[in-house]
Amino acid sequence: MTTKQAVRMAVALPAKHRSRLMNTAREARFPVGTRLFEEGRKADRFWVVRTGTVTLDMHVPGRRSAAIESLAAGELVGWSWLFPPYLWHFGAEATTPVRAYEFDALAIRLMCDSDPQLGAAVAQWVGQVLAHRLTQARMRLLDLYAPHGSGPPR
């Protein structure tokens, strides 16, 4: 694991929990265009990107998939694996060649169940990631860069 990724995960995960997680990680490589997962399918894995970009998208009938957000080095790809019903909410595609650490969701959930401290730390980590993404999504909803800022004048 590079220093940078250590820093990113370390923000939320104490070292001992982090190393337990990393011990289960597999290295994965995805060529450009690989679909990591599809909306509605079983969320049985998740990733932390090492290099490259993964783009989240949603299928819109009659149009090409709408890209929602891109995730880059050090960032978590996938959170639906942590919450029932463990189904992906969006799709994900490698938009560049991607190297990532891949984690088995079921194994991690079992580890969390048997070690409540680890479970709390993982929930805290994913929760922080989600909180940041929610904030960013809300900022984007404001459409701040539109001609009149965040909407029509009062």
């Binding site: 783009t55 929602i68 957000e69 891109s70 940041h132 993404r133 904030t135 960013q136 900022m139 984007r140």
Partner: peptide, 9 residues
């Protein structure tokens, strides 16, 4: 083909 998201990301 570039990044998508808010600048703070």
């Amino acid at each position: 083909s570039g990044d998508i998201g808010f600048v703070t990301a």
